Amino acid sequence: MKRFFKIVLLAIVLQSFQCSDSNEADDSITASQLETKKQEIQNYINSFSCSESLGCGFIAFGSKPCGGPLSYLVFPNSVNLPKLQEMVKAYNEMNRLYNIQTNAVSDCMVVAPPTEVKCVNGVCTIIK
């Protein structure tokens, strides 16, 4: 009985020295989550069509490990801009945290914003 008590006590003591934090795993962001969020934003943008009269806009998208956007998304001006901005802001923050988690590296080159976007055959397109 003494031996059983010592084993149980040892197990309890050893368990109290574990270093992992259960909240860490809950806060991690996966590539799959990023892709799902990206697709959600693309689907939202694609649910609107553009026209010559309304035109198109663009927004910085993603987060490079060195800072700055990964790319720019073009969208018809008929979207609900505050909603799109909120969706993109959430994605950019997720991407930033993912980069930190994975110790991501990049080329650190600045991605220049488009200088001209137009509606071409009902689709917003970067001209230059």
Rank of each mutant, 00 (worst) to 15 (best):
residue 48 F to R: 02
residue 123 V to Y: 04
residue 89 K to M: 13
residue 126 I to P: 03
residue 48 F to Q: 01
residue 80 N to S: 12
residue 73 L to N: 05
residue 60 A to E: 05
residue 73 L to F: 07
residue 53 S to R: 12
residue 54 L to K: 14
residue 65 P to N: 05
residue 49 S to K: 15
residue 89 K to F: 10
residue 45 I to A: 02
residue 35 E to Y: 07
residue 60 A to M: 03
residue 71 S to V: 14
residue 107 D to N: 14
residue 83 K to P: 04
residue 70 L to E: 15
residue 123 V to E: 09
residue 74 V to M: 08
residue 117 V to Q: 01
residue 78 S to F: 00
residue 32 S to Y: 12
residue 67 G to N: 07
residue 99 N to C: 08
residue 91 Y to A: 02
residue 112 A to M: 15
residue 46 N to T: 06
residue 66 C to K: 06
residue 56 C to V: 03
residue 94 M to F: 05
residue 71 S to L: 11
residue 99 N to V: 09
residue 83 K to E: 15
residue 81 L to V: 13
residue 41 I to F: 00
residue 102 T to Y: 08
residue 56 C to W: 00
residue 55 G to M: 06
residue 52 E to D: 15
residue 67 G to Q: 08
residue 41 I to C: 08
residue 124 C to Q: 00
residue 87 M to P: 07
residue 27 D to V: 13
residue 69 P to K: 03
residue 115 T to P: 08
residue 55 G to T: 03
residue 64 K to I: 06
residue 125 T to K: 09
residue 62 G to L: 04
residue 64 K to Q: 02
residue 121 N to H: 13
residue 66 C to R: 05
residue 93 E to C: 07
residue 104 A to M: 12
residue 54 L to E: 15
residue 59 I to E: 01
residue 44 Y to I: 03
residue 85 Q to C: 04
residue 73 L to M: 11
residue 45 I to Q: 07
residue 49 S to M: 14
residue 37 K to W: 02
residue 30 T to G: 00
residue 69 P to G: 03
residue 75 F to W: 03
residue 120 V to T: 13
residue 106 S to K: 11
residue 98 Y to D: 00
residue 77 N to D: 05
residue 93 E to I: 14
residue 65 P to G: 01
residue 91 Y to H: 07
residue 46 N to E: 12
residue 85 Q to P: 03
residue 81 L to W: 04
residue 67 G to R: 09
residue 63 S to R: 11
residue 71 S to P: 06
residue 48 F to V: 02
residue 79 V to Q: 03
residue 93 E to Q: 13
residue 43 N to S: 12
residue 109 M to H: 15
residue 72 Y to M: 06
residue 124 C to R: 02
residue 71 S to I: 12
residue 123 V to F: 01
residue 59 I to Q: 03
residue 67 G to E: 05
residue 89 K to W: 04
residue 121 N to I: 10
residue 39 Q to G: 04
residue 45 I to T: 05
residue 65 P to Q: 03
residue 30 T to K: 01
residue 32 S to D: 15
residue 29 I to H: 01
residue 39 Q to W: 00
residue 92 N to V: 11
residue 44 Y to H: 09
residue 62 G to D: 04
residue 84 L to R: 06
residue 110 V to F: 15
residue 118 K to Y: 11
residue 49 S to P: 02
residue 119 C to T: 06
residue 66 C to Y: 01
residue 55 G to Y: 00
residue 55 G to A: 04
residue 111 V to K: 10
residue 86 E to Y: 09
residue 98 Y to N: 06
residue 100 I to T: 13
residue 99 N to A: 09
residue 90 A to I: 14
